[in-house]
């Protein structure tokens, strides 16, 4: 890959693999826009709760106030600070997304790698398992499980979402592994007598690392959406505020009829922006990693 412009004195695209990725990453508008939006919300989740001057769940503010200097995002019908609820909910969203995304990615990678590399009977069994979980409407399963748990935390919610959202990832990774397994360098490693684990994590996984990163991003975004939906039905964590729960409270308490937009617009907007930025970043990453898609 040679430099396309030549005008830039540092045109480093040809230098080394990593620099090349960076070179294209910094010139990809989709990736940059997505990353900026994502970072803004991430910073809000990390530092927002420190900035909040009020507790999220206490009723110490004047009720139903539009945004003002004292209450940046206004207050709820019961006199809670919306800004404080928002940043704390944002934090929960990121925590659930990360935990659930990791759980699903690990399960998906494990199943995908072994099914794709081993083939045969292992593949048949794992494929069957994947198909069953894929067909089950997992949201309905989450509904029943969560309904029976009277005390739920962020961790349990993330675990359940992770345990049910891996199938498509497993399928995609399996297909990739399958095509890599027939390559010569894997055959060489096999001839050298390397162990299955070593081949999978030393030879196969690094060759699809970009793919794995993108899979994780999609799992992360999907988990945030699922968590918001569960929270909205009232099956989210019982011990903390979340963006979904904010929307639930606002709808259940006639915020729509009263026109209290500051109560329900921020939580949904944040989720849309975070998940949307992840999707756009993914497209950008695809263009960075895949030379065929680079349009410079």
């Amino acid at each position: 890959m040679t430099s396309t412009t030549g005008s830039a004195p540092t045109s480093p695209a040809a230098k080394a693999g990593r620099n090349e990725v960076l070179y294209f990453a910094l010139r990809n508008t989709k990736l940059l826009i997505g990353a900026v939006v994502f970072t803004i919300f991430l910073l809000g989740a990390i530092f927002g709760p420190m900035l909040a001057t009020h507790e999220p769940m206490t009723f110490d503010a004047p009720p139903g106030m539009p945004p003002s200097a004292d209450y940046w995002f206004g207050t709820t019908l019961f006199g809670q600070d919306v800004f404080s609820q928002f940043v704390n909910g944002l934090r929960s969203s990121f925590i659930v997304g990360t935990l659930a995304g990791f759980t699903a990615a690990i399960i998906g990678m494990f199943i995908g790698f072994f099914a794709g590399y081993r083939g045969g009977f292992v593949d048949e069994v794992l494929n069957m398992l994947t198909n069953v979980v894929l067909v089950i409407p997992t949201f309905a399963v989450l509904l029943v499980v969560a309904a029976y748990l009277s005390v739920r935390g962020l961790g349990t919610e993330a675990a359940f979402i992770g345990l049910t959202s891996w199938p498509w990832a497993a399928r995609a990774i399996r297909a990739q592994t399958f095509s890599l397994t027939s390559r010569d360098f894997v055959g060489m490693a096999r001839l050298n007598g390397e162990s299955t684990l070593r081949i999978i994590f030393g030879e196969i996984a690094p060759n699809m690392s970009s793919y794995l990163v993108m899979t994780f991003i999609l799992l992360f975004g999907g988990a945030i959406l699922t968590a918001a939906t569960l929270d909205f039905i009232g099956l989210g964590p019982t011990d903390s505020i979340s963006l979904g729960l904010m929307m639930n409270y606002s709808v259940m308490n006639a915020a729509l009829q009263l026109g209290m937009w500051w109560w329900f617009v921020p939580p949904g907007l944040a989720i849309t922006a975070i998940v949307g930025s992840l999707y756009v970043m993914n497209v950008g990453l695809d263009e960075v990693f895949n030379p065929k898609l680079r349009a410079l």
Binding site: A228, T229, M247, L256, F264, G268, I271, T272, I274, Y279
Partner: peptide
């Protein structure tokens, strides 16, 4: 990327 309930809201 929009949550179903938010667009509804």
């Amino acid at each position: 990327a929009t949550p179903y309930m938010w667009l509804g809201i």
